[in-house]
Design a protein around this nucleic acid. Structure first.
Length: 356
DNA sequence: ACACGATCACACATTACTTCA
DNA sequence: TTTGAAGTAATGTGTGATCGT
């Protein structure tokens, strides 16, 4: 018998949990499981985890047959309760904001749902002085300081290296920032991916060529809140969702993608911290229990030497129930003529097997 | 059917920047 | 005003899956 502690990537093949797992929705979240089982099964868990990396954090450690469910920090508000029906597939369960798709209309303030105002970006270009566009900014009537970072300064990105007075924005970038969804829809996923990777607003090759360092955008509270709401619905995005979200927030798809990646990382980190705390507690408890048992063993040994007729006393042993892998208290009464073994009904639920 | 390259999405580690005490 | 820590946007890299040839 071994004690297995699984941290992070939750084991999937716990035998006594299999029946119930099939009834549970597959949740894309981290779980924690501490289980007591045979070593062979533990190895199976580990092997499965290694060979099935993609699914490892999609599956919870099911423990419905256990009295104590694994500690699970529900950091993800979208996590369904165990007894709830599984969420419909993404196609059937659109984002709340999908019904609020707004094509940014340059020159007019676009109001999104949830009270989030997103002002379309417009290229500021003065044909009189022939200066290159300094900034892609929101409406000049925008006086909300909180939306300052909405006024993304694209001048460093799109600044023409030749100093041409013509609008130096590349067509694709211009279309992106003005939210041309028709254009976006026309792009293949691959093109969009390549575009977003090439055209990240910071650290682009253009910037590198200009010798400009990376400039960090600070998302506004509104943007963060909106992304957070989306994350509650799904912690991953398909390309279309990403584009819609990026368009709504006047961010680049790559930025939305990065935000979700970092958000997943933060969630996992917090879950890991909770797991560690729980493991620490478990370790302390087990250490204390071990200490107690060692002491008890010493006392029994001392008793054995002092009382030679101890054999007439019923011996209590701990055995493992093969079906549910719980420790069962077994009392054996040894007599000189015969040996009878009876499995006692557990007095305490913690060391008994009520179902067998 | 199989191999191969291109592409994508993701996790993860890390860097760089911002904010705040 | 300076500074260090914390938070986080962004980058780089590696890996597995998918698709077209």
């Amino acid at each position: 018998m071994e004690l297995a502690l699984s941290l992070g990537d939750t084991p999937k093949t716990i035998s006594f949990a299999d029946q119930s797992r099939s009834q549970q929705p597959k949740m894309k979240e981290l779980g924690f499981c501490m289980n007591v089982g045979s070593s062979s099964k533990i190895q199976d868990h580990q092997h499965k985890n290694f060979s099935d990396k993609k699914d490892d954090d999609k599956t919870n450690c099911s423990s419905s047959s256990s009295d104590q469910p694994p500690l699970q920090l529900d950091l993800l508000p979208f996590s369904p309760a165990l007894n709830q029906a599984p969420p419909p597939p993404p196609s059937d369960r659109p984002f709340p904001w999908l019904s609020q798709i707004v094509i940014a209309d340059p020159g007019s303030q676009t109001k999104l749902g949830k009270g989030l105002d997103v002002k379309p970006l417009t290229a500021v270009y003065d044909p009189n002085n022939g200066e290159e566009p300094a900034t892609l900014q929101s409406s000049p009537t925008d006086s909300n300081s909180d939306t300052s970072s909405f006024q993304m300064d694209f001048s460093s990105i799109f600044r023409s290296s030749t100093g041409s007075s013509r609008l130096p924005l590349r067509n694709r970038d211009m279309e992106l920032v003005t939210g041309n969804m028709d254009y976006l829809a026309g792009l293949s996923e691959r093109e969009q991916r390549v575009s977003s990777r090439r055209g990240g607003y910071v650290g682009t090759s253009d910037e590198d060529e200009n010798g400009l360092g990376r400039k960090k955008l600070r998302l506004t509270k509104e943007q963060s809140a909106f992304l957070e709401e989306s994350f509650k619905e799904h912690n991953t995005l398909n390309p279309k969702q990403k584009l819609v979200l990026a368009n709504q927030l006047n961010l680049r798809p790559r930025q939305v993608e990065v935000w979700f990646q970092n958000r997943r990382a933060r969630t996992k980190l917090k879950q890991t911290e909770v797991d560690c705390e729980y493991l620490k507690t478990c370790c302390e408890t087990l250490t204390e229990e071990n200490r107690r048992l060692q002491k008890e063993l010493q006392e029994l040994r001392a008793l054995k030497t002092s009382q030679p007729f101890y054999m007439q006393l019923p011996a209590t042993t701990l055995t493992m129930c093969p079906s549910c892998e719980r420790v069962v208290t077994t009392t054996s009464t040894t007599t000189p003529a015969s040996t009878t073994t009876t499995t006692s009904v557990p007095q305490q639920p913690t060391n008994g097997c009520p179902s067998h």
